[in-house]
């Protein structure tokens, strides 16, 4: 009689041998035979994906390495290319869809200029290419100009703000920031106050538009980002009106971003964003290092409680992302449309 392990090995050779590279086959296994499959795969250069419902799933060929998986993404989107820093979590507003659960009541949880200095130095060594500062509302911090200077010394930097606090010492801080290296990104959801104010509070549209004008007048290139709740998808017409409005303000078309609300934080509806579906953009807050800025208030996206060393967290995220991609590739090949 053919013993069970022998049958298994012969099945593996026959079934996997009949596949094209990257395709998967299922070979029935008995409990305890996983080791034989793993050993066979490692000898023959194939990929043992998992055991599912009594069958070993084996993908033909060597799984792509982390670098090979990441090479599929454009360089600026590769995990580790962008570094997000949550300067603080408190905010002068309390928008209903805020993904960081910020509000005037939220605890500040500031990263602090010293930590940020160290992080950007580490980031420079870890081949990060761009920094994004966000919150909360960063302009609540009265040393924001120092924080920005620390970042722009190494990287082109984007500063996310609601644009409502450009007065007095805060306007002075804005004036001290680099025009070449810093792009303020101001939130504005619509061409008229109605939609914007519904989610962000009465009178906020007016002040945000004033903030955009101020930053432009101060000589900054300004990016404007609109956040659209899932049940309020805009019509093409509405979008055109919005673009024309921003054109008139003097915001370049390339700097006009319209995006759906992320299902995170206070948002109840929106685009579901999980570690499995999001290309990571490493994000550091006072509480730890996260997978992506939209998940910085969520434990499922916590990479580590530590914020140093940054390069280790980046490496960890790159590896985890490559693992997810490989699994998804396997699943995609495994569940054909028919």
């Amino acid at each position: 009689m053919v013993s069970s392990a022998s049958r298994l090995v012969l099945d593996l050779v026959a079934r996997v041998g009949a596949l094209a590279d990257g395709e998967t086959a299922q070979v029935p296994v008995l409990p305890g035979e996983e080791q034989v499959v793993a050993e066979w795969c490692s000898r023959t250069g194939n990929d043992f994906v998992e055991v599912r419902a009594g069958s070993a799933v084996v993908r033909r060929g060597r799984p792509p390495g982390t670098d090979e998986v990441l090479a599929e993404l454009p360089p600026e989107r590769r995990p580790g290319a962008r570094l997000w820093l949550y300067t603080n979590f408190d905010c002068n507003l309390a928008c209903d869809y805020c993904c960081s659960r910020s509000s005037p009541q939220a605890a500040r949880r500031a990263l602090g200029v010293e930590a940020i200095r160290r992080l950007v130095q580490d980031a420079a060594e870890a081949r990060v290419s761009e920094v994004f500062l966000t919150g909360g509302e960063p302009f609540l911090l009265l040393d924001l100009d120092e924080i920005v200077a620390a970042c722009t010394a190494y990287f082109p930097t984007t500063l996310l703000t609601n644009g409502m606090l450009f007065r007095g010492p805060r306007l002075d801080m804005l004036r001290r920031m680099s025009r070449d290296r810093l792009v303020p990104q101001i939130s504005l959801d619509s061409a008229t106050p109605e939609r914007h104010d519904r989610h962000r509070g009465r009178g906020t549209w007016q002040r945000a538009v004033a903030g955009i004008r101020t930053a432009l007048d101060e000589g900054f290139r300004v990016r404007v980002a609109a956040t659209i709740p899932g049940d309020e998808m805009t019509s093409a017409e509405e979008e055109t009106v919005f673009h024309v409005f921003l054109d008139d303000l003097g915001v370049l078309r390339a700097d006009q971003i319209i995006r759906p609300v992320a299902q995170r934080g206070f948002a109840e509806t929106g685009v579901a964003l999980t570690v499995e579906t999001l290309v990571p953009e490493i994000t550091v807050t006072a509480d730890g290092t996260y997978w992506h800025p939209v998940g910085a208030a969520h434990l499922d996206q916590l990479v580590t409680r530590e914020i140093f060393p940054l390069d280790a967290a980046i490496e960890d995220v790159r590896r985890q992302f490559a693992d997810h991609q490989r699994t998804m590739l396997g699943a995609a090949r495994h569940f054909p449309c028919a």
């Binding site: 013993s3 392990a5 022998s6 090995v9 041998g17 050993e39 066979w40 000898r43 023959t44």
Partner: peptide, 10 residues
């Protein structure tokens, strides 16, 4: 070689 010589099928 593909069947692992005599090592995978003890």
């Amino acid at each position: 070689e593909a069947i692992g010589r005599d090592e995978l099928m003890p």
